[in-house]
């Protein structure tokens, strides 16, 4: 029942969050925590490295932005529509990408990401191209940053619980089996490609949903939201937090947003620091912060850490 304690801890942190950080930053952390958790469904639980998560984040963001600006639909409809669109797109892209395993999957998700980036970049009349899509207004009731934070915090908890259920469900267990041993999972009768597509699609649904919230947070969809570097950021968040643990990516998202907000103000070349941290994590701390906690815990209890990164 350690999960329950962690969950209570998270609720506690959510309650004090806006007093520690500016509301918009705290909100952005939660949005990317959803994205990183969703990425971990495929990376940590199914063993698929996607370099194209920004596709779904961006499409969710653009869809929500456009529907808000042009159709003036109510917020729940906007969020639902953006999620459905990202999900549908994931089915199409995923169906192509899961045809190939491993390295090819990575390159394909990456290349499709670039394709959608170029669509957003070139279709200026729709997306505003390089300048981004401005003018995404939140409903008056949510105009206040703190109110919006509360909404996002509640939605974050809902997403967290839902993803936890996915992970603990039969699907989640089959995902882990596929991650451990794809050939064996197929040999006992599971259609591996279908499960991979399922995992990919669920992940994209949450990512698209988070993208929609993001467009409402800042009132603009920057072109960066759909660039493949954003996909790299998402992988970074997931790994630095720790892909071996369900809650790990939350830490990673918080760290990433905090780092980018504090350092980018001081130094334009901050991605370099990002690169250095990332390289160090990959070389020396593959289990991410969670592994660091485990190691520390192991020292305290003198049991030794039994950390296993997938």
């Amino acid at each position: 029942m350690r999960d329950r304690w962690i969950f209570l801890l998270i609720v506690g942190v959510l309650a004090v969050g806006p007093f520690v950080q500016r509301e918009v930053i705290a909100t952005e952390i939660l949005i990317f925590a959803v994205v990183a958790l969703a990425n971990n469904l495929i990376l940590g639980y199914t063993g698929m490295l996607s370099f194209g998560q920004a596709t779904f984040f961006g499409v969710g963001a653009y869809a929500a932005g456009l529907l808000t600006i042009h159709a003036g639909l109510p917020l729940p409809v906007v969020l639902a529509a953006a999620t459905v669109l990202a999900t549908g797109l994931a089915v199409l892209i995923g169906a192509v990408c899961v045809q190939r395993i491993g390295l090819y999957f990575i390159m394909l998700t990456f290349a499709f990401n670039q394709m959608f980036y170029f669509i957003a970049y070139s279709w200026t009349t729709l997306t505003g191209g390089e300048d981004g899509l401005p003018g995404v207004r939140r409903p008056a009731a949510l105009a206040d940053d703190l109110t919006f934070y509360v909404l996002v915090a509640l939605l974050f908890l809902a997403c967290l619980l839902l993803m936890k259920r996915v992970v603990d469900s039969p699907w989640g267990r089959v995902f882990r089996a596929i991650r451990d041993n794809e050939a064996r999972a197929a040999a006992v009768g599971h259609d591996v490609r279908r499960y991979k597509l399922l995992s990919f699609t669920i992940s994209a649904a949450f990512t698209g949903f988070a993208g929609a919230l993001y467009s409402l947070l800042y009132g603009i969809v920057p072109i960066d939201a759909i660039h493949w570097l954003r996909s790299g950021d998402i992988v970074f968040m997931t790994l630095i937090g720790g892909s071996g643990h369900f809650f790990g990516p939350i830490i990673g998202a918080a760290f990433f947003i905090w780092l980018s907000e504090t350092v980018s103000v001081v130094w334009d070349r901050w991605p370099m620091i990002l690169g250095v941290v990332f390289a160090l994590v990959v070389l020396f701390l593959r289990g991410g912060v969670v592994e660091l906690i485990r190691r520390g815990h192991g020292l305290v209890t003198a049991r030794g850490g039994a950390a296993t990164a997938p």
């Binding site: 882990r176 041993n181 997938p310």
Partner: peptide
Amino acid sequence: TSIFPTLTVAENVWVSAYAR
């Protein structure tokens, strides 16, 4: 030997039983 190393022993067998 082809098993699911990070799953528990029971989960290993479950994956097969669930498929059927």
